[in-house]
Design a protein around this nucleic acid. Structure first.
Lengths: 192, 192
DNA sequence: GCCTGCATGTAAGGCGTTACATGATTCT
DNA sequence: AGAATCATGTAACGCCTTACATGCAGGC
């Protein structure tokens, strides 16, 4: 799914201006686009050219004219196609793993400190996500099914963070148990 | 950590040419850069300009001259700094979640089919990752500790996929149990 | 005859980001 | 007085990607 499909999705939901779309992108943190002006106004032009949405210009006093967009029948068809098409595999950027690749140049204490620091960051992020989840609890209410799916999207975010914390725990334990062995081995390696 | 630090890391490991660096990037699938010519040759120029690596040109018959790079003392210092600095939080792009946001336009059967398809994709990917892990088992052998860390990096990949599968299972169960309730609710929503 | 490997680099295009620009109103 | 909200758009810059360019050797 590309950004055009996502915008079409918001518009199927209800009539919106580019400005309001921007706020949607800012709110939904798991969207892979920032939703800046360039992206949104470019996409809207493109979608309009393809006849997937219609524009309604509303003149206002002392404010620039609003352009309210809504999805056409064709647009809704296009959206359903995009939603039904196979998803791509999740991609994750994990900066901590990169650090670990070159952890060989660190002492066990330094690695321990890095782990501890990362643990705290993850913990904080998890708490924040749970808090957001609690607040935005029931926004979608077209059906109980939709509300459930939205809950599960939040839960996915939490589970990803919790999974990373679990993995970190394993790493930490493994390193503690390998403490002496690793050091001996390191010296052997230097002698070779 | 940026791509310059990563290249510096490879060079601290051993002397390499740009061409060999390209292969390193191709091999390590969890690196967030493709390692194309533009990235690598640009980074090497930059790192050389900053005095973080040295170049040794080796003329060859019938082949273009090799430029073998290695990290300088300053480069190794820079690398350690980069490794010690705090990691960024993991970022994940999850296309399936996007599909679920607009699943409201689908029937329960269609959602079920999407889930099943995604499940299969994840399962395949997990099997492939485990296979790669088995094959490349013990490449890093400067120390037992390093071998352990590399194992754990592979394990992280696996756990991420397994976690996604676990979440999918929850989603699936939840939807099955909400089957009838959701449909009734949907109709109520339409009446409003 | 064509593809792959070795080994360097350049070019063009797309996408993403931040910042700029306008201009009135309302909040602090 | 200064910042934020509403609402549109443009500009500059950087990064990433694919493809192109050279040129020889060896395998199918």
């Amino acid at each position: 799914m590309d950004i055009n499909a996502v915008i079409l999705g918001f518009l199927e939901w209800r009539q919106l201006t580019g400005y309001e779309l921007k706020k949607m992108f800012a709110d939904l943190s798991f969207l892979p686009w920032s939703g800046n002006n360039n992206q949104i106004y470019k996409s809207l032009l493109e979608l309009e050219r393809e006849g997937l949405l219609t524009k309604e210009v509303i003149q206002q006093e002392n404010l620039p004219a609003q352009k309210r967009y809504s999805a056409t029948e064709q647009g809704r068809k296009m959206l359903k196609e995009a939603v039904l098409c196979a998803s791509e595999l999740p991609e994750q950027k994990n900066d901590f793993l990169l650090h670990m690749v070159w952890a060989q140049c660190l002492t066990n204490e330094e690695i321990g400190a890095l782990i501890h620091q990362y643990q705290n960051q993850l913990f904080e992020e998890l708490a924040m996500t749970k808090e957001k989840m609690r607040r935005k609890g029931t926004q979608a209410n077209r059906s109980e099914r939709e509300a459930y799916i939205f809950d599960m999207i939040w839960k996915n975010q939490c589970m990803v963070l919790q999974n990373e914390l679990n993995w970190l725990g394993l790493l930490q334990n493994g390193l503690v148990h390998k403490d002496t062995a690793a050091n001996e081995d390191q010296e052997e390696g230097n002698e070779k």
